[in-house]
Design a protein around this nucleic acid. Structure first.
Lengths: 172, 172
DNA sequence: TTAAATAAGTTCCTTTTTGGAACTTATACG
DNA sequence: CGTATAAGTTCCAAAAAGGAACTTATTTAA
């Protein structure tokens, strides 16, 4: 089975990976967050071949992650800028950055730190519950089948899904 | 330049992508969080070829994301289980899942929802500041060069880094 | 206790995707 | 006006992925 056949499975992660889950695409997006906007800049910073860059940028534009906006007088040169949809991928990259800082570098030697502009402090980004505000980790969160799917599923299937999707189903 | 040449750049995101930023690897990890543990199960659920699966699992073991633990009497069959290092990638997948729910499905039709076991409610995972507890998004967070790097960088370079890495440097 | 089924890979070969370099077309600069 | 830069395309060789059959043990079932 080809990898792309997972792209339309009824799973948010699989579909998200269908859009951004390609090696070069992920690096391109990282650079988007680092304010890279032009074809030649992406190419120089990442060193990937032009046709791959062209292909990946086009796909990101097709998926409404990037806008291709003309600049200059002629309107025939373009900048690729994150859309709102693209910008909200920040959480994914923040999470990856934090993970890398925590696990790939010695204590205190991480290449980057985060500063929260609202309070001005260097901090760690935590995941928290929108309802009670408590911290979230992989043990105190459970993924459950959404209401829309529940209604169209038979009981046995529902249980299988809950079992299959339960992050917290088995904590050993 | 090959994609793998980015894997040892002094950037947590690039290094993290070097470990998990491969299409199949990301899907394999998704299934790890969904409690898949055995070679044949991964193969059936994902449909990738055996040699790719073998290769990707080995790399995850090499990088201490998965443990290869024997099961059964003989000790010659194995389960692949998330290590603590691997489990803490949950935030990345939670962020991707949430993004997919928000942007790829109609309101209320997302395939999965999250329940916070500590408070029992269906909720959204938010990113929050470890210091002040306030919410984080890509506009109120700034990535700054870590202390260890600061010391070994000349001023001009430091400024370039801050410019380059500043998520919040340019908010238009 | 032998036969069949399962688990976890390997090997071999074909197809697809990358990587590298040169070529194109148009705009910008000096 | 000539050269440099931007944003691609095209072409080809090399690398990686996909498919299927082959291995080697180890359970399970008859």
């Amino acid at each position: 089975m080809k990898r792309t056949e997972h792209n339309d499975k009824p799973c948010s992660i699989a579909q998200t990976l269908g859009i951004i889950g390609d090696s070069w695409t992920l690096l391109i997006l990282r650079n988007c967050f680092l304010k890279t906007r032009r074809f030649a800049d992406f190419q120089q910073q990442l060193g990937l071949t032009r046709h791959l860059l062209s292909d990946r940028l086009s796909k990101l534009v097709d998926n409404d992650i990037l806008n291709k906006v003309p600049y200059g007088k002629s309107g025939k040169r373009f900048e690729y800028r994150l859309t709102a949809k693209g910008a909200s991928l920040a959480k994914v990259f923040i999470a990856m950055n934090q993970w890398g800082n925590d696990w790939l570098f010695e204590e205190g030697s991480a290449p980057t730190q985060y500063e929260h502009l609202d309070c001005g402090q260097v901090m760690q980004p935590d995941l928290s519950c929108s309802e009670c505000g408590g911290k979230i980790n992989h043990k105190n969160i459970k993924m459950v089948v959404g209401d829309s799917i529940k209604e169209t599923m038979r009981t046995t299937e529902k249980e299988q899904w809950n079992e299959l999707l339960g992050f917290a189903a088995n904590n050993d």
